[in-house]
């Protein structure tokens, strides 16, 4: 699990690499949340995310709900496997994302 953050004005871009599962989801959650002050646009770069479990989906759901009030959230570089997970669980309906 590797997380890099870049803040540009009120846009926060987070690059995540690895699996987001029960073991890593709390870290992802904490690392993103600590930088959310004043952020209106959150971009999650999923280019190097190869797996998202239900624990990972929960993190995305909480962030999505939070960012809906503050501005917006977008995922970029979502690969086919992760896209499958989004489609099966119906998360494709609530998340804004681009496939990569």
């Amino acid at each position: 699990m590797n997380i890099k953050k870049k803040k540009d004005g009120n846009t926060l871009t987070v690059m995540i690499a690895g699996r987001i599962d029960t073991a890593t989801a709390p870290e992802v959650d904490a690392r993103i949340n600590e930088s959310l002050d004043g952020v209106e646009s959150l971009i999650l770069d999923f280019t190097n995310v190869n797996y998202v479990s239900s624990a990972g989906l929960r993190v995305l759901l909480v962030l999505q709900k939070l960012m809906m009030k503050k501005g917006g959230m977008k995922l970029i570089g979502v690969n086919d496997d992760v896209n499958d997970v989004f489609e099966v669980t119906g998360f494709d309906e609530i998340l804004t994302y681009e496939k990569g």
Binding site: L57, L61, E87, V88, T89, G90, F91, E93, I94
Partner: peptide
């Protein structure tokens, strides 16, 4: 938001890509 069922209606098991809604508890107006 559940996994696709696997059905056997033609003598072989195959995936049934049914219509999916969002997992329960995620959003109120799913």
């Amino acid at each position: 938001g559940h996994e696709y069922p696997i059905i056997n209606i033609n003598g072989r098991y195959e995936l049934l890509k049914d219509k999916h809604g969002l997992a329960i508890g995620a959003m109120e107006f799913s």
